[in-house]
Amino acid sequence: MSGAEQLYTCEDPAVWTGIYGKYWTVVEAKSAGKGKRSGKLLALDKWYQEELPAIISDRTEPFLTHPELVKLMEWKLTRGKFRPRLQQLAASNSEEVVLSCTKKAFNLLPNVQSAITELSTLKGLGPATASAVLAAGAPSEAAFMADEAVESIRDLRPVQYTAKHYSLFLQKMLHKAQQLSKVDSKQDWTPHKVELCLWAWAVAKQIQPSLLEEIPQNDATHSETKGMQEERKVTKERPSKRRKME
């Protein structure tokens, strides 16, 4: 069972709150990784998670401009799998079409599936990118279809980039948000916030498990974290085959 999957089954809001509090630390760690794209992640993520939602909220009706859609695609591809063709396709949409389509999509809420279908008519946008658009403007109704978050749920593996698969994923995010809000005095859990926690947990496990050491953990998450750290330690200490040959 993966660490992220164990997190999804966790019902302790203290654990989730602790992980949410580490989100930006994990983003910074990932941004400091190798590769030209990694260095752009922190600034792009700040824009997507903080600036863009505020911009959308300040408008009389929610929508995205063409430059915002292109930048959102850049954020998505920098954070996950890089597919340059998608960036080109997204940029090929006209300003008029982007404005019209995104306005219509937000107006279709709370029917998320209809909104996803509408956004998917834009060039380069599938359910995953469409979900990113909705999560930026309506985090209480939508969650971004991040691979790490989807893969945290056994029933949803492997990831399928379809509207049906996104619907199943969103149902899980809504359920967990409602579950946590019932036991958390702040009651501020949203599908997008749940998805961010799952992403942070999975990425931290992969690149730097020590980031999660101070987080309150139940028995399952604690044993999994300890196991991951020991495995990484053994891997570092074990000499490579090439070194043996030398």
Rank of each mutant, 00 (worst) to 15 (best):
M1L: 12
S2L: 13
E5D: 07
V15N: 01
W16E: 02
T17P: 05
I19R: 04
Y20N: 05
W24I: 05
V27Y: 11
E28G: 15
A29S: 05
K30H: 13
G35S: 09
K36P: 04
L41S: 01
A43H: 12
E50P: 07
I56V: 08
I56A: 08
R59E: 14
R59S: 08
T60A: 15
T60F: 14
P62Y: 06
H66I: 05
P67L: 04
L72Q: 03
W75A: 00
R79L: 10
K81T: 12
Q87Y: 15
Q87N: 11
L89G: 00
E96F: 06
V97R: 12
S100M: 11
C101P: 01
L109S: 10
L109H: 03
T117D: 03
E118F: 02
E118S: 06
P127E: 08
S131V: 04
A146D: 14
E148Q: 15
D155I: 15
Q160C: 12
Y166W: 04
K172R: 14
L174H: 13
A177F: 10
K182D: 13
K186N: 12
W189Q: 00
L196N: 09
W199Y: 12
V203S: 07
P209T: 01
E213R: 13
P216A: 02
P216S: 01
A220Y: 10
T225F: 13
G227H: 14
E230A: 09
E230V: 07
E231A: 13
R232N: 10
K233S: 03
R238W: 10
R238V: 02
K241G: 11
M245W: 07
